[in-house]
């Protein structure tokens, strides 16, 4: 995964609370291999039921602004794949599902937290249309529809997004500590190994 620190693109409002991961990608698409891309599956049922859905009217967008509890529910990382393959780089919302947010960061997608008031202001400014958006990850700042906002993001996640770190590589440097921990644990708690 390659890192990023700045981006310019277009934003739209997905003016809904609780956009759960079952909505982001319905379960029936999850047996598909990733190689063909998951973008077409993004919010598939909502888009099929509503011709005027914001993502039917605007397909070249990189930033979503949405309401509380975005990405709640199922841990399916496919929800993030669908967003990323559609072209989304950042989601702004007052809160995110915990598992969704980690999955997002692991795939270079920014889950940026703003206050409820800021989100409502952006949703009002965006209306049903699109507007330009620019994000500076290192500054923790963005300009969306002409409004300047500073967003909340765990500094560890910020670093990870900027550097495009892969945790497996990162963990390799702690191999010795892990080996020692394993040996100590097995010795002190032999019952922790599965019997039979």
């Amino acid at each position: 995964m390659s890192g990023w620190s700045k981006m310019d693109g277009r934003a739209v409002a997905l003016a809904q609370a609780n956009v759960d991961t079952d909505q982001l990608i319905p379960a029936r698409f999850m047996s598909q291999p990733r190689s063909e891309g998951y973008g077409a599956f993004l919010l598939q049922d909502a888009r099929a039921d509503d011709e005027g859905h914001v993502l039917n009217r605007h397909s070249d967008v990189q930033v979503l602004v949405s309401r509380r509890n975005f990405g709640s529910g199922s841990s399916r990382e496919a929800a993030v794949y669908a967003l990323v393959d559609f072209g989304i780089r950042a989601v702004f919302a007052p809160s995110f599902g915990d598992i969704f947010a980690s999955n997002a960061v692991n795939n270079g997608l920014l889950p940026a937290r703003l206050s409820e008031d800021q989100i409502e202001e952006l949703i009002a400014a965006l209306g049903p249309g699109e507007a330009t958006a620019s994000i500076d990850l290192e500054m923790g700042a963005a300009v969306i529809a002409g409004r300047e906002v500073r967003f909340d993001l765990d500094p560890v996640w910020q670093q990870k997004l900027v550097n495009g770190w892969d945790d497996i590589d990162l963990t390799a440097q702690y191999d010795d500590a892990t080996k020692k921990f394993r040996a100590d644990r097995m010795a002190a708690y032999p019952w922790a190994m599965p019997a039979s």
Binding site: N103, I168, T171
Partner: peptide
């Protein structure tokens, strides 16, 4: 606790997980 696919891969590879 539940994890996503990238974390599953990390656990498969290292039997560890990064978590706050």
């Amino acid at each position: 606790f539940g994890v996503g696919a990238t974390e599953v891969a990390h656990i498969l590879a290292t039997q560890t997980i990064w978590q706050r």
